[in-house]
């Protein structure tokens, strides 16, 4: 599904990714762990197409398409979802309007018909119930007045509503208390299926107790330095990044 080969990327003039390669197949859950400044968030932003990042070398394809050639909204329509570490507030635009506009924009780009109001609301009720978001919150401006945990739950809600093929979750667990972590994890687990894949970017092992990955990668200094199973995350927790990346 996602094939990254020898990816080099700069922020400004500063090289951050320095030859990163990774293959994610449908049905798999990958976790990318690493110390601060290793390039985890840069990887997420480069894949989602944020401005200000320059790819200097290497390729990234998504379902065979050159991902780096697409605009951010085209990547979304192709099935890529970025869960933000710091979800953004958009005052005056209700969460529901935002999601429906986004969903229909994606559908139009894919040549699919727009979702009907009734189908949309049905889906909203199902997905929001799982994440404990009430209707009043969803009628408020996008993320406006949401606590840190509510923002992350809202990200998981959007994931459920937009049904991408690949969820790229950037530090989704940061700022969550134990209960919120469990709820958000459940949202991610519900998303898992043989047709879909998840790339979790995380600092800590604790998310992986709830969402069990198939592969764990260690990202250090812009490259993946080690790959293993879930036990690698446990070793990291015990030994720290120093021991592994050295």
């Amino acid at each position: 599904m996602l094939v990254i080969e020898n990816l080099h990327a700069n922020v400004g003039d500063k090289p951050i990714l320095k030859g990163l390669s990774l293959i994610v197949n449908a049905g798999e859950v990958h976790a990318i762990m690493g110390p601060n400044g290793a390039g985890k968030s840069t990887l997420a932003h480069v894949l989602a197409g944020r401005e200000g990042y320059t790819v200097t070398q290497g390729t990234a394809t998504f379902d065979g398409k050159d991902l780096l050639d697409l605009e951010p909204h085209e990547r979304a329509a192709a099935g890529l979802f970025l869960g933000f570490q710091y979800p953004v507030e958009i005052p005056g635009v209700s969460n529901l309007l935002f999601l429906r506009t986004a969903l229909n924009a994606q559908r139009r780009l894919r040549g699919e018909p727009e979702i009907s109001g009734a189908d949309f609301m049905k889906k909203v009720r199902t997905e929001s119930a799982v994440l404990g978001l009430d209707m009043e919150m969803l009628k408020r401006g996008v993320n406006v007045g949401f606590s840190g945990g509510e923002k992350k739950r809202n990200e998981a809600f959007q994931l459920g509503m937009l049904e991408p093929k690949l969820a790229l979750l950037d530090e989704t667990d940061s700022g969550l208390d134990i209960d919120a972590l469990r709820i958000v994890s459940e949202g991610i687990n519900r998303f898992r299926s043989p047709e879909r894949a998840v790339l979790l970017i995380t600092h800590y092992q604790r998310l992986l107790d709830h969402v069990r990955p198939d592969y764990v990668h260690v990202l250090a200094d812009g490259r993946i330095v080690e790959t293993g199973g879930p036990d690698l995350a446990l070793r990291l927790e015990a030994q720290g990044y120093e021991g592994i990346a050295a």
């Binding site: 990547r75 953004v88 958009i90 506009t101 924009a105």
Partner: peptide, 8 residues
Amino acid sequence: FYAMSRGL
């Protein structure tokens, strides 16, 4: 970017 990453 947030809105674009959702498909707009």
